[in-house]
Each structure stands twice: as C-alpha cells, then as structure tokens.
Amino acid sequence: MTIKQCLKDNHNRLLKQWFQATINTYPAQSAKILGKDVDRFDNPVGAVTRETLEDILHLLASDYTADTLEKALDPVIRIRAVQAFSAAEAVSFIFALKDVGETIMDSAFAREFDRMVDQVVLAGFNRLMKCREDIFLLKATESKRRIHAAFERAGLVQELKEEDLLGSKKS
C-alpha cells in the first residue's frame, strides 16, 4: 500500500479530526457554532473550512505541486488572515494534521506524511503573506482609488500618481 492509498482509505476520519482540530482554534463558545454542519450561508467559516480541508486531503492523495496546494488553501487562509489570529495561529491548524495523522495513519508512513504536511505548511505561509498584502494594499489604496480617482477624472487633482499604487498589486 502506498501513502496515497492510505490517505484515501482514511479520508473521512482524517477530515473529521482535522476539521475538529481546526475549529478548536476558535474560542469554545464560537467553535460550537462554527463547527455546525448547517447551511453554508448561515455558517461560512465552518463550511469553507470543511471544504478546504477536504480539498487538501484530496490533493495530498493525488498529485500536487506547491502551486496547487497554495491555491487550494486560499479560502481558509483568506478567512484566517482577517480574523484575530497571529500569523502563527493563522496557519497552526495545518500542523494539527500531523497529530491527526499520527493517530490514524500507518506508522510506516509517518516520516513521509510529516514531509507532506510540511509542504502544506509552506504553501500556507505563502498564501497568508499574499492575503495580508492584499489587506494592507486595500488599506493603503481604498480611499485613494475610490475618491481621488473620481477627482482626478474631473481634473480636480492631478498630481496623484494613481498608476503607481495600482501597479504594485499587479506584480
């Protein structure tokens, strides 16, 4: 049996425990609500977290690259980047997968599995940085783009170099 097969076989148990560990990073009173499997529009954090973790497990069980991992992580990291988490806390949930794997996966795969999780963590840090950059850019440019852009079109302010501000986002 390969580690991929083992991941597939244990998909549901891994997902369930990893999801619980992730939701438990929230305060207990909130975790109760966020962990509920209800309509995704009534509980976006819970629903998006569950879906993302599921995607990651599927990816690990098939082919993945640093890029695909990062993309798959985006929804949950994007949420955690604006919540009351430190950078470490924001990605800590990925490390929880190691503990979960330890109890579920065949110990023969332990080392290989740890390495896989490490790759997920690195992808997570990358994505977190991007999301934080998005936030800071929004902070820096929101009013300029909305208000000064209109002024500029009207020729009321001309000295503002709007393109410079926007340019940094595209790169």
């Binding site: 929230y26 966020l34 509980n43 949420i79 009351a84």
Partner: peptide, 11 residues
C-alpha cells in the same frame, strides 16, 4: 461580525 470574526463577544 460574530460569524466572520468568531469572537464570542460579537454575539
């Protein structure tokens, strides 16, 4: 705000 931040004092 509660759903988004997960902060129980936002209930």
């Amino acid at each position: 705000f509660f759903l988004g931040t997960g902060d129980p004092k936002n209930m």
